[in-house]
């Protein structure tokens, strides 16, 4: 898919890199994580937005998309919101609205990156964000963001 907002994404990554990293060369402190049975190799920002707002309901593997998110103002959620070009409040509000609309399933409520990894290893349709430093088990894998 085309990269719809390269400037916005670059700005988001730069801003969060400055805010969250302790060394100047920091990049992507968080990874998009999914189940190992999910064959997707990379994902665009637009696809990520649609995944997290109910626009994509099923993976190519056939698994039903199930979003996992930490519903508070933590770094993982801030990073995701910045990637999508919205504030944390706006992102959470949009997700809730889409659930209310019936367009997406209730997200799995996570509390940490470890939760995300556990979620991804156990649910074939899982997608969430986890600390990029965390080692992933066999049942989970990271997906590059284009």
């Amino acid at each position: 898919m085309a990269h719809p907002q390269p400037l916005a994404r670059s700005l988001a990554v730069v801003a969060l890199g400055c805010a969250l990293a302790t060394d100047a060369g920091a990049e992507d402190p968080f990874s998009v994580v999914c189940n190992k049975t999910n064959e997707i190799s990379a994902i665009s920002i637009n696809e990520l937005r649609r995944l997290f707002t109910g626009g994509i309901k099923q993976w190519d593997s056939g698994a039903v998309v199930r979003v996992g998110i930490i519903p508070s103002d933590v770094a993982e959620t801030k990073y995701l919101a910045a990637l999508l070009g919205v504030t944390t409040t706006e992102l959470l509000s949009r997700i809730q609205q889409q659930v209310f609309k019936g367009e997406m399933r209730r997200p799995a409520v996570l509390r940490s990156s470890a939760d995300c990894i556990a979620f991804a290893r156990s649910d074939p349709g899982a997608v969430c964000l986890a600390d990029a430093r965390a080692a992933l088990p066999l049942e989970a894998r990271a997906v590059a963001v284009r």
Partner: peptide, 24 residues
């Protein structure tokens, strides 16, 4: 339970996706 703190000491060390996905 309390919400955990943001990843502390996030250094921005990025591992390759393949390395992170490698069997442990």
């Amino acid at each position: 339970r309390p919400t955990p703190p943001a990843p502390a000491g996030t250094t921005g060390v990025v591992r390759a996706a393949a390395a992170r996905s490698a069997p442990s």
